[in-house]
Nucleic acid binder design. Structure first.
Lengths: 195, 195
DNA sequence: ATACCACTCAACACCATGTTGGGTGGTAAA
DNA sequence: TTTACCACCCAACATGGTGTTGAGTGGTAT
């Protein structure tokens, strides 16, 4: 079914996304116009609207792709192991996979979570992790049962803490390896325990 | 020095900000035009530009005021106690004051950190806490010295975790009291320790 | 040969923006 | 009381991005 038209279509979309990303590195989202994008992509402005409703749609689709990729990435490499390990309290494997995926998509993550973060991707990421992992962990863990703190607060606390690490990593231009980051994550937890 | 002109000026600015906030509750920032604001404020559109450069300037000034208020609020109520207590590891007083201030300015915080968070206020808040408190604590605490984790990561982790609690609180329409929130914060730390 | 496809091009109406020049009524100082 | 000043109003303007449309081009499949 992959006709030559589908290929053209795909190529143009990639061209648009690449140009868009390039612009987002230079200036904030609000300052990027469809004109800018199509000028850099060297295509007609009307062509843009054949693929996307507007620049918000473009951004949203790129976010979707990124999150879907993360989901697939996690499910493919370790089908159920991750969740099982996570439920046992072992977050190491889980987190290293996340850090790896981020490393593979640095540019986009840096732009979406970076200084000009003027689109609520932070919130989307929070919801993603919340729906996919943390809440399951928080709900299933037997030793969470006797905790008086509401689950939603604990969940939001944990995810944000993790995202805090990720954001700092991105700010540091990925100076550490994914393994080092996963290690750091564990160490912080241990550190708090011994406090 | 508070002439009648200053009062008029101030009143109009408050009017603009109030109308702006009202609109932000209805729709995302990008969809709010200067026309919308001045229509609701029942003033001439040109008048808006006598007070603000554009809607981004307006937003930024409101953020500034909010952060300056938080700073003053913290400094006024307990001049140095907060930092001293915090440096001793007692974050209770510190955090309850923060929760109280947020409660006093729910509407704005909810809009700035809420679902339509399309302006990097999350990042600004992170920097604020980072510069004012956490980094001082992290740097001064003697028992942080033998920790191998880089300070910036620990700082980002801690602040984000705290903001995670705050954001969940806002999402829950401030169902808990500031004291309960501060308590919850402490409990989570203790819980991690016992994990 | 015909229909289809992605894309180009030019033109369009629409709307928000930021600015300007002139005007109003109330305030303060001469 | 006159004069200058002030915040604000009003109308008009050029600018520029937006989304859409109709006509046209050159390859592709049938």
């Amino acid at each position: 079914m992959a006709s030559i038209y589908d290929e053209m279509n795909e190529k143009t979309k990639e061209n648009i996304q690449k140009s868009f990303l390039q612009l987002l590195k230079e200036k904030p989202f609000v300052k990027v116009s469809v004109r800018d994008i199509t000028t850099i992509a060297a295509i007609n402005r009307g062509t843009f609207y054949l693929h996307y409703e507007d620049k918000y749609d473009l951004l949203h689709q790129m976010e979707d792709t990124l999150l879907r990729g993360l989901e697939v990435h996690l499910q493919r490499l370790k089908p159920d192991v991750l969740l099982l390990e996570a439920e046992k309290g072992n977050i190491s494997r889980f987190s290293v996979e996340v850090f790896r995926y981020i490393q593979e998509n640095v540019e986009l993550f840096q732009v979406l979570l970076g200084e000009h973060n003027q689109f609520g991707f932070h919130k989307r990421l929070k919801h993603f992790f919340g729906n996919h992992f943390i809440e399951k962990i928080v709900q299933n863990q037997h030793f969470f049962q006797d905790l008086t703190i509401p689950k939603d607060y604990l969940s939001s606390f944990a995810i944000s803490a993790f995202l805090g690490l990720v954001e700092q990593w991105l700010d540091n231009s990925l100076a550490e390896s994914p393994e080092e980051m996963a290690d750091m994550y564990i160490q912080i937890i241990f550190f708090i325990r011994k406090m």
